[in-house]
Write a protein that binds this DNA or RNA. Structure first.
Length: 429
RNA sequence: GGAGAGGUGGCAGAGUGGCCGAUUGCGCCGCCUUGCUAAGGCGGUGUACCGGAAACGGUACCGGGGGUUCGAAUCCCCCCCUCUCCGCCA
């Protein structure tokens, strides 16, 4: 969430932020916060004064002679009643402010392009060349089904639509990709993490997925736990509520985890194949660092490059887009998506999403650090990006590296993880 | 699932109705001392909000929420969490 003090001084910027993000209903939250805050601020000095009076009077009592007590106690009881009403109002105001403030979205950076949805994202760069096949390329699901690598029918029977079962070499490739991603990041100093997949509401709230993302989340009502949609949730929450030392920052983590998404409201969208599924594996990079905008931006570029390096190693053409305001989520200040070429879509498809939040998540998580040179503790900055999400990344791998006979070329980088093999599958066509 | 113990400041750990925003130790900061990469002495050191230029003053906060009381870290109720033992099981 935003700093309330900042919000007080910059209400127009906060309103403009919600508008740029195409969240008109959240503009109201800004106004509501300001109203409630004004009321609370007007109330506070009175309340503090009354409490102070009552408190000091209470201290007197212990020293009073029994005869004087009666009178004193009567007065104290009056004060108590007077206080009670105001305190109730104070409590309600506090709760409302917290609630409304949590709805106010993070402010998108100036460099975030204007736009209503993902069609208006702005291409930043394009890397690699789209291959000229010299034959009619097939979609990943055709290749995979022909090779016996995937079974959508049985998956749907046992688990519903948008599920899949991987077999054989594709299951191995899936794992190789993830392992490669982890190794790449560990080589760059990121600490590998195997996090909880079921988390409390506080972690969902802290990372900004709730309120707002409830429909996307599988929830175990009985236990009050949520299946994570990304390791961003547990890993960013890792130091929630902590007061860190500046010396231990930045914290860099890489987590491989299963991810679960309900994909509500996407009926009829991307129904075929491995693109949009309820469950997948993802390797995620998370950085927690000091409250320094320039450093956050530098980290942002770094984590995008990390993902690009993976795609280059996989010999895949991709492009980087700057996500526009309307396609930005509540907590993000700026986001780059990386889209990898998918021949079956005849388009680039999103495979990575790199976000910076500044202190928006960390404030919700109460994650601060003590400055090296003293002074007040500051709220951390956080960032994250995909390294590899599979099976989605298998789409470009299969489709771009397919050969006319239905076998699949293995990029050199992945061969050590596949027993040295350079080709997967048997000739089919 | 059954039984018990406990959740206090950056950490450890006292405190069982007013003298407690909280002893003490560690850590950290400052000063001093000292013949050796260490030790010692003294002082300081929570967070948030309100007021103030500041010094400082006020209020809230001892897992969370209710309650008793003139007054609660301390008593009562509910919830959450952690630990130990037993059971069960990967």
């Amino acid at each position: 969430m935003l700093d309330l003090k900042w919000l007080r001084e910059n209400p127009d910027a906060a309103r403009a932020a919600a508008i740029k993000k195409r969240m008109p209903d959240r503009v109201a939250a800004v106004d509501r916060v300001l109203e409630l805050d004004a009321e609370l601020r007007a109330l506070t000095p009175t309340l503090d004064g009354m409490r102070s009076e009552q408190k000091s009077a209470s201290k007197e009592i212990g020293r009073l002679a029994p005869a004087e007590r009666e009178q004193f106690l009567a007065r104290q009881k009056e004060r108590k009643v007077e206080l009670a009403a105001l305190e109730e109002r104070e409590k309600a105001l506090r709760a409302d402010i917290d609630h409304q403030l949590a709805l106010v979205p993070n402010v998108p950076d100036a460099e975030v392009p204007e736009g209503k949805d993902d069609t208006e994202n702005v291409e930043v760069r394009r890397v690699g060349t789209v291959r000229d096949f010299g034959f009619a390329p097939r979609a990943h699901y055709d290749i995979a089904e022909a090779q016996g690598w995937v079974d959508f029918k049985r998956a749907a029977d046992m688990a519903g639509s948008r599920n899949y079962i991987l077999f054989g070499d594709l299951a191995l490739l899936h794992d190789a990709v993830l392992r490669f991603a982890v190794d790449l990041m560990v080589g760059r100093g990121f600490v590998p993490v195997d996090p909880p997949l079921l988390v409390r509401d506080s972690a969902m709230f802290g990372t900004g997925f709730v309120p707002g993302g409830e429909e996307q989340t599988y929830r175990c009502e009985k236990d009050g736990l949520n299946l994570i949609g990304t390791a961003e949730v547990p890993v960013t929450s890792l130091h929630g509520g902590e007061l860190l030392d500046e010396a231990e920052l930045p914290k860099k983590y890489v987590a491989r985890s299963a991810c679960f998404r309900r994909e509500a409201g996407t009926y009829g969208k991307d129904t075929r194949g491995l693109y949009r599924v309820h469950q997948f594996q993802k390797v995620e990079q998370v950085i927690i660092d000091v409250a320094d905008k320039a450093r956050s931006i530098a980290h942002h570029h770094t984590i995008v490059e990390n993902a690009e390096d993976l795609l280059r190693a996989f010999e895949l053409p991709y492009r980087v887009v700057a996500v526009c305001g309307g396609d930005l989520g509540v907590p993000q200040a700026m986001k780059y998506d990386i889209e990898t070429w998918m021949p079956s879509r005849n388009a680039y498809g999103e495979t990575h999403s790199a976000s910076r939040f500044y202190d928006y998540q960390a404030r919700r998580l109460a994650m601060r650090y003590r400055q090296k040179d003293g002074g007040k503790p500051l709220v951390c900055h956080t960032l994250n990006n995909t390294v590899a999400a599979s099976p989605r990344i298998l789409i470009p791998l299969l489709e771009n590296h397919q050969q006319a006979d239905g076998t699949v070329h293995v990029p050199a980088a992945l061969r050590p993880l596949l027993g040295g093999r350079g080709v997967l599958g048997r000739p089919i066509w």
